[in-house]
């Protein structure tokens, strides 16, 4: 499994996800600078990492979505290469149009940095096959703009096509409004593209993928990718 992590000015989770990938796959990913428009053709996975690319200027992810490397990311996604966008990466993928909807300022306007519970809504993906259906996992969030919005037809489409991958929930797996940290539509924390090869999520699985960090609930995501892409 050959992977690349795209690095933008202001990315700050690029090395965390690189560590998770290397521990899972045994191979260090290629760290690819955003200004280089040519990506290797033989990649299996492209990661858009978390952070604050371009200082969140204009809109979160807006500048990164127009970076030189992004047309190559889009072409790779069109060739069914797996693309994983975490946090700022999710914002970038929405800004490029690779995923529908948008991420707005959190409902209570606060930057949120804490662990939340997520319910795995579908295991029929290359990203979540190592989780159980409906499994409740604990994953950290760290964002100011994670409030997912989409119009009603988009919301219905995501639901009908089984493209909502994670929802915010309580410890018992109930997707209540109290368990929704940022006001996201329908407690949505992560979604897939139509072809199911692009995943964007606000929580950070790479931050809980090692027992020394206090948990391993993020690890199955990387194990799922390894199995699917090797």
């Amino acid at each position: 499994m050959k992977s690349a992590v795209i690095v933008f000015p202001g990315s700050n989770c690029d090395r965390d996800v690189a560590v998770s990938l290397e521990r899972t796959t045994g191979h260090a990913p290629l760290m690819h600078w955003h200004g280089d428009s040519a990506l290797p053709e033989d990649l299996d996975l492209i990661v858009i990492p978390g952070g604050f690319s371009y200082g969140d200027y204009l809109r979160c992810g807006a500048m990164a979505a127009r970076a030189a490397v992004m047309p190559a990311v889009r072409r790779a996604a069109d060739r069914s290469v797996a693309v994983l966008g975490i946090c700022n990466g999710f914002q970038v993928l929405c800004e490029t149009g690779l995923l529908p909807g948008a991420l707005m300022r959190n409902r209570d306007l606060r930057f949120l940095c804490k662990d939340v519970y997520l319910r795995v809504e579908t295991t029929d993906t290359i990203f979540t096959s190592h989780y159980g259906p409906g499994q409740v996992i604990r994953i950290p969030i760290a964002h100011h703009d994670g409030n997912y919005v989409a119009d009603l037809p988009t919301q219905c489409m995501l639901e009908d096509e089984d493209r909502v991958v994670f929802r915010y929930c309580d410890a018992g797996g109930k997707t209540t409004d109290e368990a929704n940290p940022n006001g996201s539509l329908d407690n949505i924390a992560g979604i897939l593209s139509e072809e199911r090869n692009v995943l964007g999520l606000m929580p950070h699985p790479e931050r809980l993928a090692d027992p020394r960090l206090g948990g391993t609930d993020g690890q199955p995501l990387f194990a799922s990718l390894l199995e699917a892409l090797s």
Binding site: L58, R59, A62, R66, C94, E95, P100, G101, A102, M104, V149, A150
Partner: peptide
Amino acid sequence: RKLLANTVI
């Protein structure tokens, strides 16, 4: 349409 506004929202 290409940058200044996100026409989704």
